[in-house]
Amino acid sequence: MDVKGVLGSISFDGEWITITKTPVGQPPAPVRLRAADVTGTHRKPATRLFHGYVQFLLPGSTAAGEKSGVMQGGRPPYSDPHSLSIPYKSNDAAEKLVAAVEQARG
């Protein structure tokens, strides 16, 4: 199960979540999270004007807050390794991925 994000992607194989961000000019830096270790998820659907995001919460770490402003549009900063911005066309795939992760957690 894959979700195409803004400058990256999220994939889930039933046990592991892989967030791969592709910064400009640098090699991709994937972050792997075990679904059983995730304590919660945040998903903000994208609109036609603003990107949304998917964020995974882990024990012992605080969630990166949403940044305000025209360019950020209420999303966590790009430097947050446990979140990824998503475009409007990826809303359905992101919803299915979050539901699958929640099911694998419990």
Rank of each mutant, 00 (worst) to 15 (best):
T39R: 13
G106Q: 12
E15V: 05
A35C: 10
P28S: 00
P27F: 05
K4Q: 09
V70R: 13
V70E: 04
S85Q: 15
G65P: 12
A99R: 14
M1K: 05
E95H: 15
V54I: 15
A29K: 13
A64H: 11
K4N: 02
G25Y: 08
A35T: 09
S9C: 01
S90W: 04
M1G: 09
P27V: 08
G25Q: 07
P23C: 01
T18Y: 01
D37A: 15
S61H: 13
A63K: 10
Q72I: 02
D80E: 14
M1Q: 04
T20I: 01
G25V: 06
P81F: 10
L97V: 10
G73S: 13
A46W: 14
G60H: 10
S61P: 02
P45K: 15
L57Y: 04
G52A: 07
A99D: 08
P59G: 03
A29N: 10
W16F: 02
L7R: 08
G40A: 15
V24W: 10
Y53G: 01
H82M: 01
K4L: 09
N91Y: 14
A63I: 09
S85M: 13
L49D: 08
P87K: 02
L57G: 00
S9E: 07
K89L: 06
L84K: 11
A94S: 15
R32E: 11
A46E: 14
A29Q: 13
T47G: 15
V3D: 02
A35N: 10
L97T: 10
S11V: 01
V70L: 14
R32Y: 03
G25W: 06
A99Q: 12
G25N: 04
Q72C: 03
V6W: 00
G65C: 09
T20K: 02
A29M: 04
T41N: 11
F56N: 07
Q26T: 05
G69Q: 12
M71V: 13
D13A: 00
T20H: 00
Q26E: 06
V38S: 05
P23H: 00
S11K: 02
I86K: 07
A29G: 04
L84I: 12
G14Q: 00
